[in-house]
Design a protein around this nucleic acid. Structure first.
Lengths: 360, 360
DNA sequence: CTGTTTTGATTAACCGTTTAATCACCTAGC
DNA sequence: GCTAGGTGATTAAACGGTTAATCAAAACAG
């Protein structure tokens, strides 16, 4: 029947070999009882006629779409390419597709976006939330990326430790007076990074935190942050918690006649795409997005597969306090993936005159 | 039967009202013949019990998944967030989902990525191709974004005209000696932009094109482009065909003691996320991604829907030379969407001393 | 009052796959 | 020789929605 028109299906294979569809299905999935030689033959003819399993068919029967939803809630997140690429790669490796939904920075739209994905039958969701947003129970497995302070099942870079690493790097180069530059004080990620930096400073070091959003509210958007003045006051290390802010600092200092890295060091976070090409190349902390995505996807798929069977099954799970009602991702915890220091030309040894200032 | 367990389906509604599933289906889709009051009742109970149509079910029957594939072939394309967001938005507005696949810059993987999407049942593909790559016939509707010189069904920004606009902007500010900075001479997009710029220069203007990739091959990666020297030779306009290169030029000039925009103007392309925040803010050409995506998606969906019926049907299409074999997107042509000039602080009036140099 | 059309709804097949239940057959045990 | 058990395959019923074909009743024309 279905000779020319549509793509080959199980019954085409069955017909070609004179066996039943069920047998073919069993042979392909390795589930039922099929003789080894028949399996071999079926595999062969399947390949010959170019059989491709139908996802809708499978989805309809099993209730699993084989698709994960990726919800991007932050406007045009500069890390999006990295995240999307890593998530898609990890998912594809596990045989899953990735459906995207962007909520364009609007918190209200975030719910819509999530719903769109659920209606489409996404088996689980990866959410990169808008800051401050919490993801409620949506009746399907969810994993959150990027803000470790978020409650729930979260995978994130170890931002705190990242802050510590960058601080230690600068300390080891003799810096003692730090300006820490953040965007918004409401961001969990940024607070973690700032906290990590400050926690690593010894008692003989001084630091000052600048929140750009705050300054821009009192002054103008894109206004001067008076960093050159800070440099003249003796600050030598300018740690931004994002490459975006680091770039801004870098340019402001250079325009203000402060040479980088000779007179001041500038560091960032995230290793964005252009960070290597600016002059001087930006010293920054890179998140291991591949690992983060891998862990996130692995967890998600675990949860999805655990969902099918009840609270207990063949896995001989050890003494679960089976709370039948709550979706038992109750082992929800936070995974932290270490960040990696990338040293480029924007950071260097603190200028000698610093000591004198510091001792004044 | 299916009371508590799974989500409600058509037969639940049918059972609740004592009608047949077919009637309910007709009522929801508005296809068959159903009395207006019954439609009303069905809609109401559907909403009450929280009915959500099953995509797999529909897909299985109709052969349409309601999903488009977005193939990103260029490594970590800086425009990706813009593209993805616009495409997703446009697709969602038409009731389609977007499945992504990244080929991580590898040309070979691009075919894999496309296949993954097709196997998953994507109804059509939006491809942002790696430069130079051609997309062969894949048996489903395809639309290509971003390189107007690519043969086939393409939607792109009018890069050539963008080049003309930026050139006119600089000319009107008195600039006469141009350095045009490109990345790779193999890129269609970049060549279009360069061509647009040069085509607009009057005979009394001088221009020189620099391809960064070429320079870096003979020198080192991230090496100096000697732009400050060019400025001293009397060049006042530095037109990069990407904000990435513009940023690099901007920093190099500033480091070399050339004030921007007082002594030289720098312009870019694409209005990337950080372009407003650098100092001085970058004058650049923005592509209207929303419109591009809208057109691309509209075309794709047209092609998908036309695919179902034969070469002719109810649409009374005028005299088609029905070539039954080729997938009849044969009306394949190129749409160009105008670019928009964004003037910021990095461009300004040409310094006066230029005239003297020019007249020497 | 009869024959035809229109309207509103039903029936049943189908899309491609999975899976529990069943069955025919062969081997072994006593 | 008859039964119990195992093996390799088949049957048939879903999963949820669409749609062509059918049908009963009502509306209408003559």
């Amino acid at each position: 029947m279905s000779t020319l028109r549509s793509r080959p299906n199980l019954s085409d294979i069955a017909a070609a070999l004179g066996v039943s569809v069920a047998t073919v299905s069993n042979a392909m999935s390795g589930k039922g009882r099929v003789s080894t030689e028949l399996i071999e033959k079926i595999r062969k003819t399947a390949a010959e006629i170019g059989y491709i399993p139908s996802f809708p068919g499978k989805a309809l029967r099993t209730g699993r779409s084989g698709v994960l939803g990726l919800v991007l809630a932050d406007i045009v997140h500069p890390l999006f390419p990295q995240i999307a690429q890593a998530v898609e790669f990890a998912a594809a490796n596990c045989g899953y597709g990735v459906l995207i939904a962007d909520s364009r920075g609007d918190t209200a739209t975030q719910a819509d976006a999530i719903n769109r994905l659920l209606e489409r039958g996404a088996d689980g969701l990866v959410v990169v939330p808008r800051r401050g947003t919490r993801i409620g129970d949506i009746g399907r497995p969810v994993v959150v990326i990027d803000s470790p302070s978020t409650p729930g099942n979260t995978v994130a870079a170890d931002h705190w430790n990242g802050g510590q690493q960058i601080a230690r790097h600068l300390l080891s180069h003799g810096h003692r007076r730090f300006v820490i530059i953040g965007g918004s004080s409401t961001s969990n990620v940024q607070n973690d990074r700032v906290g990590g930096i400050r926690s690593s400073l010894p008692t003989d070091a001084a630091s000052e935190v600048i929140w750009i959003e705050g300054i821009e509210q009192s002054k103008a958007k894109g206004c001067d942050l008076d960093l050159a003045a800070k440099a003249r006051q003796g600050f030598t290390a300018f740690c931004a918690v994002s490459d975006l802010h680091a770039l801004r600092a870098l340019m402001e200092l250079q325009r203000g006649g402060v040479a980088v890295p000779e007179e001041a060091s500038v560091t960032g976070f995230d290793d964005l795409i252009w960070s290597p090409v600016v002059t001087p190349g930006l010293t920054t902390m890179r998140m291991d997005m591949a690992t983060i995505a891998e862990i996130a996807i692995a967890r998600l798929i675990d949860a999805i597969e655990a969902e099918g069977r009840g609270p207990d099954d063949d896995v001989a799970s050890s003494e679960i306090h089976s709370s039948n009602i709550s979706h038992d991702i109750s082992a929800a915890d936070v995974s932290s993936v270490p960040m990696q220091l990338v040293v480029r030309q924007s950071s260097g040894r603190a200028p000698v005159h610093q000591r004198s200032i510091q001792e004044e």
